[in-house]
Design a protein around this nucleic acid. Sequence first.
DNA 1: TTGTCCATTGGAAACGTTACCGATATCAAA
DNA 2: TTTGATATCGGTAACGTTTCCAATGGACAA
Lengths: 345, 345
Amino acid sequence: MFEPTIKDIAKICGVGVSTVSRAINDHPDINSETKEKIMNAIREYGYVPNDSARNLKRVDAKAIAVLVKGIANPFFTSMITVIEQECKKRHYAMELSHIEADENEVDVAQKVVKEKRLRGIIFLGGLFSHSEEKIKKLSVPFVFSTVGSIPENISKKLYSSISVDDRRESARMVNYLIGLGHTKIAILVAEAQEESVGKLRLEGYCDALKVHGIEVNPKLICQTKDELSHFSMENGYLTTKNLLERKEKFTALYAVSDVLAIGARRALYEAGLRVPEDVSLAGYDGLDMADYTVPSLTTMRQPVEEMAKDTTRLLFDVIAKRTKHQHITYEAELLIRESTAKIPE
Amino acid sequence: MFEPTIKDIAKICGVGVSTVSRAINDHPDINSETKEKIMNAIREYGYVPNDSARNLKRVDAKAIAVLVKGIANPFFTSMITVIEQECKKRHYAMELSHIEADENEVDVAQKVVKEKRLRGIIFLGGLFSHSEEKIKKLSVPFVFSTVGSIPENISKKLYSSISVDDRRESARMVNYLIGLGHTKIAILVAEAQEESVGKLRLEGYCDALKVHGIEVNPKLICQTKDELSHFSMENGYLTTKNLLERKEKFTALYAVSDVLAIGARRALYEAGLRVPEDVSLAGYDGLDMADYTVPSLTTMRQPVEEMAKDTTRLLFDVIAKRTKHQHITYEAELLIRESTAKIPE
DNA sequence: TTGTCCATTGGAAACGTTACCGATATCAAA
DNA sequence: TTTGATATCGGTAACGTTTCCAATGGACAA
């Protein structure tokens, strides 16, 4: 079947290709009658500009990329949805790419940016193995927005970030549990490596215990298994089962992610432990899901929508050079629900 | 910063551009030493081929698109993840696009295909307003794979489909509930419009009741609200609250999606109804999530992974003209778990 | 009338790649 | 030596756009 190009449209309308180009790109230097005539022909013949040709010619491809590590976490799904909407508003395309566990995200970024001539990158994920040297090598007009932990070893001038102070908010949650009378608090932690959210949230947990003079009991610190997706219900479930086998007494369980908490809930249930009567359960993230479980889950809500919107806005601002790189920190909101309760006397 | 092109690499290596092209595309007509030399230079200078230029020149852009209606449903998220992996294996890019409620999916497909010169399209979604005429207009080498309900009014030769016989499997679920002794079975149904999964699952529900001589009680048929995302926990929750306000007695509640069921579970809980003691609850889809709720959810598992793999395989087969359009139907698996029980005498 | 300015247009050169076609070198066979 | 086949390579024309630059024509002032 016949696929019209800009030349065909030009011929049909008896004008030059540049005129058609002006028409479709809303250039001012064009007669309104001519433009209308062209637009009609375009509609009639179903002409759609070829994106590759456009991006090849344009200095600026109107597109950004979102790189996600750990798509399994619904928290990121929500963020992506909002980011996509924001891009659409600005008539930008959004390229979505997953980063596998064994890939380096800056390398992937490098490749994607060159391949597609993108204007910017948003990183989504809790753990990044950035190195300053690699980031400097990212040649193209580039914005590096990270959601989650902020790499400490890199000059803040090189990237923007959007994050919640995981360590502080995590401590806040544990403080709340301690306030309820709990002292034997177990923690379910994912990816407790350098610069990861897991590590920060674990540190917050330790901070809170120390402030209250409670000794950190290593037997109550449970790390998720590497073989599985770190933030998955299955991992939460299995890790909790593992914890229960240790026979170490605890009255509260704090999972550093809602998904983990939901898996944990199941494991507790199967072990015959009631929530919150026998064990108080707390999550982190504030997923919609956490509000519909039975019992509903006490959690730290991260302002997803706001964060996603700001990420996008910031990215476009930096691209347009309206602003320098910024680092925004959000407050999380402690949502107290049914899964946590005072420890019985 | 300096961004090398194929010409630069050619100059650096003292060869022609076509030789470099041969090297990066694994053409046979090239000396292995030359190739190695070129590959080294490419690594050293960080050359990455420009995707736009490639796709512009190539007759066949190595990419397909996945168009999703209703991304909120985690069922689709799983499918997309698998499809993406399959594409990666074949060195194809996957373009992901959402279809808004007010958009026509064939129009979107048309536009995307022309814009990006794609080789094929996969539709994901329960409801499509396809028209034969529009599909025929899809000019480019094109494959149309639909997952979900199959449009009945369109020649089967024009597209491929991957689906579960929603009507039959839905009836199977209701049969199972009837087998447990339930006769007052409420149904939570989303999007009960023409050609939608919702409608088919509702029909299956009616079929099963009729076979057992149980009268269909319209007061037990609850439609989700249009304002919300049809397949969301919130909608399941609100619709169930609405059902409960009707004061119509029921001993089982069948939600046509697990997400809805989880919302329903919450509403039942708040109303003081125990699952399964007071009300048996059943879902549909077989999400991972359904296995971790308390109580775990009886559901109809659709073979997501298999379906996603077959969809991709089929698409690539049709693109390569290895096969004609096909229509594959899968069996769902009835997963009986804790949320359903025999009706007490 | 002439010159100047503005609005509108067309032509053509890129953008970076692939694919075709032809060129060269090498080597074996005649 | 000549011929032909084979392996390897380079040049160049596209692919469909955008963007610059120059051209045209009309309006208006000098």
